[in-house]
Design a protein around this nucleic acid. Structure first.
Lengths: 238, 238
DNA sequence: TAGAGTATGTGGTCTGACCACACCAGATGA
DNA sequence: TCATCTGGTGTGGTCAGACCACATACTCTA
């Protein structure tokens, strides 16, 4: 693997954990050695171990917890969406990725997802999506809760494809622009009307998928996403 | 933003940089303050600053360099593909993301990309893709160089869509499975024949895009990807 | 004027210390 | 006997301070 170039110490730590995963000595749910033990066994300082662990944590690979007992320490969780969401959010902040491109990518991912979801007809996954819509019907929730449920609904549809990579990408696309969505809400002339429209579109979309009508679902989700961003984007990018 | 829950110090550092980016006080190409100065201005230790910087670096947001002068220190580079590639690679190592899902996601992204590329007809971008194929025609390069150029070609096609998010996703999808591709090469009965076939398919694909024939390009890229993985995946997942 | 030598500031690494926390086992009480 | 309190112990989180290798920019010398 051409280790000619200088490898920093924390990269060695990341590489070590990656190798342990690849070899199957670490798997999802495993508890890693403590930072001090890892430092000693690799012959590096605890600071360097911590830098590596920070990277793994930011990638959604592990989770850390203080204290003692079986839940403490670094545990492999492997939540792929975490790292991708952070990456997208940060690059969005740096203006190196335009919001428009994210929206277009959503269109491409989601039209495929609902077609695939309609084809697979994974009833359990669709039931989850439906219960999220039920929760979003609660008139007492505020705008932020509504849009979080909205995001969860779209992610649930992505999960109905059975493709974990697509689901992770969808989670990160929707999660990264949550801040932009919330920034747009106060700018909307009539948010309650918008929410009613979104609820209606969600129901129709889910019905089309459950009917196995992938084409109709694709058209509905495209209109749904385009409609929302045409109403909100001008307010934020202004 | 409800900072009720405990925020660790390195997260404060990440958040600080994110805010600076969002406010425009930092942009791509900017040089960040030194670690010591940042630690003092935020009232935290240098170790914590470094942990935050490690995260930003892993996300592809910044690049660090030792020494002195204008190129040293932490500089904002905003290479979105870096973070996503690492995230995918690590989750692939943990078996939480199956290779098959990545391949299926490539199909979805790339069929869209070549359709969009054919529609946009970005001559400059397509010329870059073509020159990568020229380089890959060199009979002296080895398997690794060939597959790296192969990956670059597919990424170049994604760039021809003009969508930076799609291009970053494509880069990470292809980059994350590079190790798997290289692991499969020695298992192939006749790699030179495979390479000849891939070269031919690449040329036909690029020609279809340049002809503006998105449908044909989509069919070609689908057959191209499916063909390669049907030949290699069994060797690796075994 | 050209070159060698030096000063300076950068990230990279290490050591060792202390803290807050969460669990767990043994002591204590009813 | 059982419930409750109370330390002990090990975890990550944070900090201070030191030294190193390195790359540039400056200064001095031949």
């Amino acid at each position: 693997m051409s280790a000619d170039i200088r490898q920093r110490t924390h990269e060695l730590v990341v590489r070590h954990v990656e190798d342990e995963l690849r070899a199957g000595r670490l798997r999802v749910g495993s508890r890693m050695d403590g930072e001090r033990a890892l430092a000693e066994s690799l012959g590096v300082s605890r600071s360097s171990v911590r830098e590596g662990i920070r990277v793994l944590e930011a990638m959604g690979l592990i989770r850390t917890a203080v204290g003692s007992g079986p839940d403490s320490g670094a545990v492999v969780v492997a939540d792929a969406a975490v790292g991708m969401t952070s990456a997208l959010r940060l690059h969005l902040a740096s203006s190196s990725l335009p919001v428009e491109d994210i929206v277009q990518t959503r269109l491409l991912i989601e039209t495929w997802s609902v077609r695939e979801g309609a084809r697979r007809a994974d009833q359990a996954a669709l039931r989850i999506a439906g219960s999220l819509l039920d929760a979003a019907d609660d008139p007492d929730i505020d705008a932020e809760q509504f849009h979080l449920l909205d995001a969860e609904f779209h992610v649930a549809l992505a999960h109905a494809t059975g493709n974990d990579v697509v689901a992770a990408i969808m989670t990160s696309l929707r999660g990264a622009i949550h801040g932009y969505v919330m920034a747009a809400v106060p700018e909307l002339p009539d948010w309650p009307a918008m929410a009613r429209k979104l609820r209606r579109q969600h129901r129709n979309l889910l019905a089309a998928i459950q009917d196995g009508d992938g084409e109709r679902a694709a058209q509905l989700v495209e209109a749904h996403i385009n409609g929302f961003y045409r109403a909100t984007l001008p307010a934020v990018t202004r």
